[in-house]
Computed example of a mutant assay.
Amino acid sequence: MARVTGPQTGGFRHAETFVEVAAGYRLWVEMTGDPERPALLLVMGANASGLTWPDELVELLSRDHFVVRYDHRDTGRSTHAFHERPYPIRALADDAIAVLDALRIARAHVVGMSMGGTLVQLLLLDHADRLMSATIFGSTLIGGAAPDPGISDDDLPGPDPRLLALWAELGQGRDPEAELRWRVEHWRVLNGDVLPFAAEEFADLERRIAAHSGTWRSSAAHALADQSGLERGAELANVSVPTLVIDAPEDPVTPPPHAARLARAIPGAALVTVPGLGHALPRAVVPSLAATITTHTGGRP
């Protein structure tokens, strides 16, 4: 049973708390906006703190929503204990529901990026009654889906080789200066090759995340976690929750047509392209991304 520690919701613009979830894990949670507005839960990708969602994006979304972002297990200020208490990736979807339960949020719009998009697909299958809408981007269709006559597996390219080389170094011991350089280079590749890359913007982000986390050590927990239980793509054919799939045309992790394949697997899903979007969230793309999400959730475009 999830439990909140720290300040409670109600009548504030911004607050932080901790939510205790199963297996002795405590998650850092931040809430922004008016609790009387529709809730919007942001679910980040693998090994990434909730602070990876840009403050500017949270601010724009909070004009129409009560925005919740949080640190997954083994990221940020949440409990780091994977090696003592390992868990499967699918448990992170249960954590998202635990956050809603602890904040007494009956239903929410949910936005998932990268691995967060995988988790949102599981939420669509197991907790549809808790979702007002779903938005997914930077992700791919979970396994086990029925063959698509229009987009075959051979049409789905893998990650950029430059990323594979960087990922081979994930979790290696580096001093803070070297770790910062590695992370900025990682963001450079994730950004894609169309939008200008502002190295100092992402260096500032990583300094904030390190200060927030209290360490420069990178976690590889989600890369090591059990991937079983994700072969459920065929079940998406029964989804009725309004779903938006955002196509990131410059994404080096899940390049086109991954987004189109995912959208085709979910009945009625909309597919909208955000020009220039890669697998990073630079300031240059935040206004168009926020407008795309807000249009889908029924807020101001």
Rank of each mutant, 00 (worst) to 15 (best):
N238W: 10
Y87Q: 03
P54M: 11
V286L: 11
I136F: 00
V67S: 05
A291N: 11
G33N: 09
T52Y: 14
L61A: 10
P282L: 13
R130I: 14
E177Y: 03
L57Y: 04
D155T: 09
R207V: 13
Q227R: 14
P242F: 03
L163I: 01
R107S: 14
T215K: 13
T32Y: 05
M44N: 11
H65Y: 11
L195K: 07
W28R: 07
R183P: 00
M113N: 10
R283L: 15
E206L: 00
L180Y: 01
T140M: 12
S240F: 03
V245L: 08
E200H: 10
G24E: 12
S219G: 13
R174W: 01
G76N: 07
H14A: 13
A225H: 05
P149I: 05
G214P: 03
L236A: 08
V189D: 01
R162G: 14
R107A: 14
L41S: 04
V285S: 13
F18E: 15
G171R: 08
T254L: 04
E36V: 13
P267C: 08
V274I: 15
P54C: 10
G50I: 01
E179W: 00
L124G: 06
T254W: 02
D34L: 10
L164I: 05
L124Q: 04
G276M: 08
